[in-house]
Design a protein around this nucleic acid. Structure first.
Lengths: 217, 217
DNA sequence: CTCTCGAAAAATGTATACAATATCAAAAAT
DNA sequence: ATTTTTGATATTGTATACATTTTTCGAGAG
């Protein structure tokens, strides 16, 4: 619902938020780690004000947590969390495909194809960069939501994928199944290109189900 | 995703957030109104620090907006916004009912029945209190999500219903169709009580569709 | 009269000082 | 030895001062 489209001059709060979020989703900061304000101040060389703003946002976004009034910690990501998010994702990703039926332009298809190819390229490399692969996975699913034109769906997709990314890094699932997932994306995009939306919907439902199975191992 | 269950001593930021949010969802603050920090400081008799925290949260929650780096304003709620949210709601409310099939306890059913009766009582009064009715509507749908045990679904439901509440107040839709909606709730809860989950799912889908129709008038 | 430019005013972003609370460790009591 | 108390320390919540940006609005050019 919040609108990233309006460009705001890069503020220290924003930079701090991006930096800390990146450290969390890339696994440098691990679940349970305390996000002490003073420590982050030194590390990022800013005062507490922007740090606090960043932490608030992370808490609201579900990447950090603050019980009682004590310190903020990186939130645990449990399998259960991901299963619950996946239950929601199954509904919303298929919804996205249905909505695309009336919304997808040649321009949009090109964009999806480009993201997919990019992902293939990354996965093809011998010693793949899994963090980069997770980012492309994020981009692809978010793009799918964005192309529906439904702002709320887009916002929700971002929340789901952000949390999922954190899990993918920590669990090593991407390392194990990265290539498989890329193939599934390929299939979905293919159906969208050829206008076979019903097949695309089935394919994306299978994709989400497959993701869930891989996680549960 | 954020967890309201952890009790934190009521902080000034929290109080300010609740106060401003209430004014927005109850229509005292109208879309486009500027949320000037100094003005809110005077009004709520606190410094800018807690006010800023509250505003940040409102922006993140989708009730306010900040383009560029200028002032924060109450976000416009367009019909289009509500239609988009409703597209998502249709999927997630039916998902909630499906999930309840394995989760709903007698205790949970009692809670839903209680909320529903409360709502009926409110709607039965000649000069109904529509703001209260909108609150009960919020409570009922949120309870439905909460009883699934899916934290992400609950969080998303809160976001959807918060935005919807704002719209219901501003549009006067509840005033026109409040009674109708209560009847539909009654039907859904009835099916859940008798364990007819398939019918409940159809009923809630119809309910969401009906809401969308009423909005589009 | 309209438009542009720029300085004054207002508002937001940031830093820091102070207050309240939580944390932790050492001493006292059992 | 274990638990409790208590005070020192660290950390967060709040207020405020300062820096930077945005807005306003009038003077002057065209």
């Amino acid at each position: 619902m919040q609108d990233d489209s309006k460009k705001k001059r890069e503020t220290l709060s924003e930079a701090a938020y991006q930096a800390i979020k990146r450290d969390i989703t890339q696994g440098k900061l691990r679940p349970g780690d305390v996000l002490g304000e003073e420590r982050l101040c030194e590390e990022l060389a800013v005062s507490r004000t922007p740090i606090r703003a960043a932490l608030q946002r992370l808490v609201y976004e579900g990447l950090a947590q603050t019980d009682d009034n004590k310190s903020v910690r990186v939130l645990q990501v449990t399998q259960e969390d991901i299963v619950q998010i996946t239950q929601v994702r199954r509904e919303l990703e298929t919804l996205a495909v249905r909505l695309l039926k009336d919304k997808l332009t040649p321009e949009g298809i090109r964009r999806l194809r480009h993201l997919c190819d990019e992902e293939k390229r990354l996965a093809a490399v011998e010693t793949a960069d899994y963090l980069a692969l997770i980012d492309r996975d994020y981009d692809l699913h978010v793009a799918l939501a964005e192309l529906t034109g439904n702002q709320f769906l887009l916002d929700t997709m971002k929340r789901m994928k952000t949390k999922s990314s954190q899990f993918l890094v920590l669990s090593g699932t991407m390392k194990k199944y990265g290539i498989t997932g890329v193939g599934e994306h390929e299939e979905i995009i293919g159906f969208l290109e050829s206008g076979q939306y019903d097949y695309a919907e089935v394919a994306i439902r299978n994709h989400i189900n497959a993701i869930c199975d891989r996680i549960l191992e």
